[in-house]
Design a protein around this nucleic acid. Structure first.
Lengths: 389, 389
DNA sequence: CTTAGTATGTTTGAGTTACTAACATACGAC
DNA sequence: GTCGTATGTTAGTAACTCAAACATACTAAG
């Protein structure tokens, strides 16, 4: 490792400390939290300020002693854009370094395999609108959330059942958009982006994130980092086997978790029409007479899959999100019953089952954060760019 | 991060490059592989040589150009000791930096809950003998392999069924040994140590290590690092559920993998006496008339558990070890059948199922390596010590 | 109103560390 | 014997961080 890498590392350390701060931070508190000395932090902070990444606010008195100068991520100077492609809409969100929303837009469009170009055009329109509304902030990156499996190189969507997509070279299409020519673009799975929102709330924790939407997906978070796996699909446990030779799953396998716990499985069980929305389904369930039985079945299947995952990974925290969030209190006892029976960790620790305080669109927010994240890891690149400009 | 940390990092980088080298390395090749410059590498290497961690060998001509000076880990100067506590013996192995055996000893002793002090005394005796035979090398660490679950703080053995141990404060006992007073001591699970041997053979790879012995255990290796989990038990998938409400496992649960695939389960199935050795069991199986059926049952159960684990972790390589090693070729098709049916990764990649070329005592060797490992991570500490001396 | 106390942030000079560029070295090949 | 090539070293430079002292700005108490 070279000495310039050392500086980049420390610059990033300070930058992330400022961005992730919940209470106001000063140069002095940064020096303590980063293990660097005051002069070093001062120098780094000065560089970040001149680059327009950090702002000084008015001095604040903290009891005795000289008042501290609070440091905050610069607002309205940097723009990260998240795009979300869903079955029936495309959304776009612009945030700044502070994580504040600068602008957002949505177009309603039924996305299918037949109108990929239209969807990409919609993305381009939304992008331009959001960018225009966001003011003079410089666009540093775009991240697109897709509800499906992405190829390991991030170039194409291997399969997205809800969109009826298979092998769509999305990156190639996106890069035809003029506005994206000179900007880093990232395509990522929606759940892996949603979990970023949860990570922001639980910094450096380890947990299993379970998200129920049309299917059941998840992600594994180890000490604040999402586990990738060799293809970038780690944590996608919807096709874990919970019942050998059990019910037929729409993936063609038998006994998958999704065959028991998913929008489709639930809808069929409730005998509802095909186009019922998830919210309606949940509501329907709550009126249903065999609600308890349905919840119990879901809970036990989920519990088994979760127990196996917790054993392999040796985790003791589970976060429920998506449609599982609202029914978390109700379903948790069934999950817990199965988990406590099968998870080794339950012998020494209590397995914590919590619900995610999901935002309205966690994937969209996660995508916007992901678009900015490289800047936080390598502030030096941005500084070099702003010097040239 | 401070500049001294940078030096320590680079020192470790060079040290590990020398130790892990399969072909002879020179200062110049190190400069290329570590991304450092020749002068920097020269300085670091000089420091390692004066500290007695690295040795120069006779120059070797490599075609044209000045011959390179091959660098090797110093032999016979540093001693790492591994101890293995098994049901019927205790072994001790001393290796040097180069990974070469300096000395080894074994005592046969039936270890139970009732003779922990005796076992510890045996450890002390073996340690003294191995240390005496190893010559003038300086002892830098001791690691003890135990076939059971270790508490997260590494202080005690929570449970070791084969030894009939439960809550044994092994570290406290070990530290009463005079020879261990001033030496770092580590207690670790035997499988997690065995896997180190496999990692040495597959540097920086990601795979799932499955080891059959009296039970079934495993470890997860991600880019050359063993996944820990919150308690240090990650990968221990013997109690994964393969059949809800299935066969009774000796852990009291139902449907565990171990209830189908383990020494005990196999022995009972073969109708053999309690004290039959694993080797004999395997041999017995090979003569058995329903061998194919037994292998098939094992393979399918294992396959299901492996498929679920591969899905969660998104891995595509499985290494079979222990008693599964010798029968790997035979059992792999059954595992593959199940895995191919259920693992997502099988859709794009072929799942690789291989056998480990296990040494006679992988845990013992892994323990010895683990004893030396801290030195490789922080050569600076050793240098400081050798300067003081 | 002054003085002491305290915490923040800056200045200065020094000490590391690694880098660049040039050079010395030691071989093979023609 | 000279050239080409690759290794390893030397000398000087640039970059980074650190330690210690200092300047700053506030509170609190006499």
């Amino acid at each position: 490792m070279q000495s310039t890498h050392l500086r980049e590392h420390n610059l990033s350390l300070v930058m992330r400390a400022v961005v992730n701060a919940t209470v106001p931070v000063s140069r002095a508190t940064l020096a303590r939290s980063t293990q660097l000395t005051k002069p070093t932090v001062s120098k780094l902070v000065e560089e970040l300020i001149t680059a327009g990444l950090v702002e000084e606010h008015a001095p604040v008195s903290q009891g005795s002693g000289r008042p501290m100068v609070p440091l905050h991520p610069a607002q309205h100077t940097v723009l990260g854009i998240g795009l979300e492609i869903a079955a029936e809409h495309i959304s776009c969100l612009g945030i700044d370094l502070a994580g504040g929303m600068l602008s957002t837009r949505t177009e309603y469009l039924e996305v299918t395999a037949d109108n990929v170009p239209e969807a990409v055009q919609a993305c381009a329109r939304l992008l331009d609108q959001v960018r225009a509304e966001a003011g003079p902030a410089t666009l540093v990156g775009v991240c697109v959330a897709v509800p499906g499996r992405i190829s390991p190189d991030g170039e194409s969507v291997l399969s997205a059942p809800n969109l009826d997509w298979a092998d769509v070279p999305l990156m190639r299409e996106l890069q035809r958009i003029p506005a994206l020519a000179a900007v880093p673009v990232l395509v990522q799975n929606d759940i892996r982006l949603s979990v970023l929102t949860e990570i922001a709330r639980r910094p450096d924790e380890s947990f299993m994130y379970v998200r129920g939407s049309t299917g059941v997906g998840g992600a594994i978070v180890l000490e604040g980092k999402v586990l990738e796996g060799v293809h970038g699909w780690a944590g996608e446990f919807g096709h874990t086997v919970v019942e050998p030779d059990g019910a037929l799953c729409r993936c063609g396998r038998r006994g998958c978790l999704e065959a028991y716990v998913s929008y489709h499985a639930l809808r069929e069980r409730a005998g509802l029409r095909r186009d019922v929305l998830i919210d309606e389904l949940v509501e329907e369930l709550s009126r249903s007479s065999d609600r308890a039985e349905v919840i119990g079945t879901i809970g036990r299947s989920l519990g088994l899959a979760i127990a196996n995952a917790l054993n392999i990974l040796d985790l003791s925290t589970v976060v429920l999100s998506g449609y599982l969030g609202p029914i978390a209190e109700e379903i948790a006892p069934f999950i817990r019953e199965t988990v406590d029976r099968h998870a080794l960790a339950a012998e020494v620790d209590e397995i914590v089952i919590e619900r995610s305080d999901d935002l309205a669109a966690p994937a969209l927010w996660g995508a916007a954060r992901a678009a900015i994240s490289p800047l936080l890891d390598h502030p030096g690149d941005w500084i070099a760019r702003s010097v040239r400009a």
